[in-house]
Lab assay of single mutants.
Amino acid sequence: DESNKPILLPNESQSFERSVQLLDQIPSYDTHKIAVLYVGEGQSNSELAILSNEHGSYRYTEFLTGLGRLIELKDCQPDKVYLGGLDVCGEDGQFTYCWHDDIMQAVFHIATLMPTKDVDKHRCDKKRHLGNDFVSIVYNDSGEDFKLGTIKGQFNFVHVIVTPLDYECNLVSLQCRKDMEGLVDTSVAKIVSDRNLPFVARQMALHANMASQVHHSRSNPTDIYPSKWIARLRHIKRLRQRICEEAAYSNPSLPLVHPPSHSKAPAQTPAEPTPGYEVGQRKRLISSVEDFTE
């Protein structure tokens, strides 16, 4: 099969070098950035008060330690540790928490760990991170309901609301924008112990962030949302095809390698009803078989 044979790379090609550099910018793992907010007593309706908090309760602090690993920003190499735009020179604080497994990295933009500057009256330095995160974990210690939209931002799609209760338990629920209701189930609340709260809140936030990324990708319907490693695979396959075309153009005697095509017509299947918005969006999480067989 010609399409699977190794090909020689061009010795000097600026377009090839640019493509390789672009490939280096696509990590081999999925990345997520999640905002974390603490809401104190009497702050449920005040964005400024929430963003001005420099610490929270003892249970909130224990919750943070379970979310991930504490890292010092100045020691991080952005090409190895995903920071979601946090500055490593102290502009966004000294520490944050991050978490990773074999296929993804997540960083938490924690408002109480970011510096509260006197010259920044409206807390814009914090909002440029927190307001651009799709998902926020809100530790609501106010005793009042927290409403979506209290923290203004164009991309605040989903809130994971943590409400501490007695007996070391917590109520965990989801809020989302109306255009996200087909992807996020907000109907079920959970009672979770303090011990298990970081794991549950983190998983709910990661799932909500993946759904938000799919939702946000609708602005470019021709580019369905893939995982990062599938995006790398697609980029490599496009690069291979372009090299083959350039080689055939410079030397017409060489065969032009095309991806294999299936001449056999697909079997006719009964027509199915058109899937609704929710089903269609969830299918976009699934990769096409052509990603692996071309």
Rank of each mutant, 00 (worst) to 15 (best):
S3H: 11
S3T: 10
N4I: 12
N4L: 05
N4A: 14
I7R: 04
I7V: 11
L8Y: 12
L9C: 15
L9E: 15
L9Q: 12
P10D: 15
Q14G: 08
Q14R: 10
S15Q: 12
S15Y: 14
F16G: 05
E17V: 10
E17C: 11
E17G: 06
S19Y: 15
V20P: 05
V20H: 07
Q21E: 11
L22G: 07
L22T: 06
D24Y: 02
Q25M: 11
Q25V: 04
I26E: 11
S28H: 10
D30P: 03
D30W: 05
T31S: 05
H32W: 04
Y38R: 00
V39Q: 01
V39N: 01
G40A: 12
E41A: 06
E41P: 11
G42H: 12
N45E: 08
N45S: 10
S46F: 02
S46D: 14
E47V: 01
L48K: 13
L48D: 13
I50E: 02
L51D: 02
S52Q: 11
S52R: 09
S52F: 02
N53D: 02
N53Q: 02
E54V: 04
E54K: 05
G56V: 02
S57L: 01
R59V: 00
R59D: 00
Y60T: 00
Y60A: 01
Y60C: 00
Y60I: 00
Y60D: 00
T61E: 07
F63H: 00
T65F: 04
T65G: 12
L67T: 00
G68A: 04
G68F: 03
G68V: 04
R69M: 14
L70K: 10
L70A: 05
E72M: 07
E72P: 09
E72L: 06
C76V: 09
Q77R: 12
Q77I: 09
P78D: 12
P78H: 04
D79V: 03
D79H: 06
K80A: 05
L83R: 13
L83F: 07
L83E: 14
L83G: 15
G84D: 14
G84C: 11
L86K: 12
L86A: 15
D87K: 14
V88Y: 05
C89G: 14
G93K: 15
Q94N: 07
T96N: 04
C98F: 09
D101Y: 00
D102Q: 12
D102A: 09
M104G: 05
Q105R: 12
A106M: 09
V107L: 11
H109M: 04
I110D: 03
I110M: 02
A111D: 02
M114C: 06
M114P: 03
M114T: 04
P115V: 04
K117S: 13
K117R: 11
K117L: 13
K117F: 13
D118T: 14
D120Q: 10
D120M: 05
K121M: 12
H122L: 12
R123D: 11
R123K: 08
C124F: 15
C124Q: 15
D125H: 15
K126F: 05
K126C: 04
L130I: 15
G131L: 15
N132F: 07
D133C: 07
F134A: 02
V135A: 02
I137W: 00
V138K: 00
V138I: 07
V138M: 01
Y139L: 00
Y139A: 00
D141E: 06
G143A: 04
E144N: 07
D145F: 04
L148S: 15
L148A: 15
G149M: 04
T150N: 03
K152E: 15
G153E: 05
Q154H: 12
N156E: 04
N156F: 03
F157G: 04
V158I: 06
H159L: 10
H159C: 13
H159K: 02
I161Y: 01
I161W: 00
I161S: 02
I161N: 04
V162T: 01
V162P: 00
V162F: 00
T163L: 02
P164K: 00
P164N: 01
D166S: 04
Y167M: 06
Y167A: 04
C169V: 04
C169P: 01
C169L: 03
L171F: 03
S173H: 11
L174A: 04
L174Q: 04
L174T: 06
Q175E: 06
Q175V: 07
C176Q: 02
K178I: 09
D179C: 11
M180V: 15
E181T: 14
G182Q: 10
L183C: 13
L183R: 02
T186A: 06
V188W: 10
V188R: 05
V188T: 11
V188I: 09
V188P: 14
K190I: 15
K190F: 15
I191M: 11
V192A: 02
V192N: 00
D194I: 00
R195G: 09
N196E: 02
F199T: 03
F199I: 04
V200H: 02
V200T: 03
A201P: 01
R202E: 01
Q203T: 08
A205R: 00
L206Y: 05
L206R: 01
L206Q: 01
L206S: 01
L206H: 01
A208D: 01
N209C: 08
A211Q: 03
A211D: 00
S212G: 03
Q213N: 07
V214L: 05
V214R: 02
V214P: 01
H215R: 11
H215Y: 14
H215S: 05
H216S: 06
S217I: 06
R218T: 14
R218I: 10
R218H: 09
N220R: 06
P221A: 06
P221T: 10
P221L: 05
I224C: 09
P226E: 10
S227K: 08
K228E: 11
K228L: 05
K228F: 05
L233W: 10
R234Q: 06
R238F: 10
Q241N: 12
I243Q: 05
I243W: 13
A248V: 09
A248Q: 07
A248P: 10
S250V: 11
N251C: 13
N251Q: 13
P252C: 11
S253G: 13
L254I: 09
L254S: 15
P255V: 11
P255Q: 10
P255I: 05
L256Q: 15
V257G: 15
V257Q: 15
H258W: 06
P259H: 14
P260S: 14
P260A: 12
P260T: 14
S261N: 12
H262K: 10
S263K: 07
A265G: 11
A265C: 12
A265Q: 12
P266L: 09
P266D: 10
A267Q: 10
A267N: 08
Q268N: 11
Q268K: 09
T269L: 11
T269Y: 09
P270T: 12
E272I: 09
E272A: 12
P273A: 14
P273T: 11
P273I: 08
G276D: 11
G276K: 08
G276E: 09
Y277V: 13
Y277S: 14
E278P: 12
G280S: 12
G280A: 09
Q281A: 14
K283P: 11
K283C: 10
R284D: 13
R284W: 06
L285C: 09
S287Y: 04
E290D: 10
F292E: 15
F292A: 15
T293Q: 10
T293E: 07
E294Y: 05
